[in-house]
């Protein structure tokens, strides 16, 4: 059974890392979690990003957060990626699988996954 003692041990390990988190992140991943986003499957997309970022060891430079309405319901789940000095990238109709690919190619590799973007989806 999980115990509070175990939690205390995690706390002690975390204490040093907390300082690291103070620095501004190079990359912010924001998942739309308004009603329409949640209904369309944003929760597992968020989990996939949180897990993926952690597994890639990028916790100190990449933050994953939740926001409300992004304003494009029919494209939910929507994820926005903000990187210092770069234009915002909006990914649409996301899934956990697509999230894994975005982490691999865009967050780690620096190459936007064009076919998942809003720009691509709305191109005539």
């Amino acid at each position: 059974m999980k115990s509070l003692a175990e939690l205390a041990a995690i706390r002690d390990k975390m204490k040093d890392k907390v300082v690291l988190r103070e620095g501004t992140s190079d990359t912010r991943i924001v998942v739309g979690m308004a009603t329409c986003g949640i209904a369309a499957g944003a929760r597992p997309v968020l989990s996939a990003f949180v897990e993926g970022v952690n597994n890639a060891g990028l916790n100190s430079t990449v933050t994953v957060s939740q926001t409300g309405c992004i304003g494009i319901c029919q494209y939910e789940p929507v994820v926005e990626v903000f990187q210092a000095g770069k234009e915002k990238v909006t990914y649409v109709k996301m899934t956990a699988e697509k999230a894994a690919k975005v982490i691999e190619e865009h967050i780690k590799g620096g190459k936007v996954v064009e076919e998942y973007t809003y720009t691509y989806a709305t191109k005539a």
Binding site: L4, L7, A8, R11, M14, K15, K17, V18, R21, V50, N54, N59
Partner: peptide, 10 residues
């Protein structure tokens, strides 16, 4: 238990 360690740490 956590003190100042935030709840949202992975």
């Amino acid at each position: 238990v956590l003190g100042e360690v935030p709840l949202d740490s992975y």
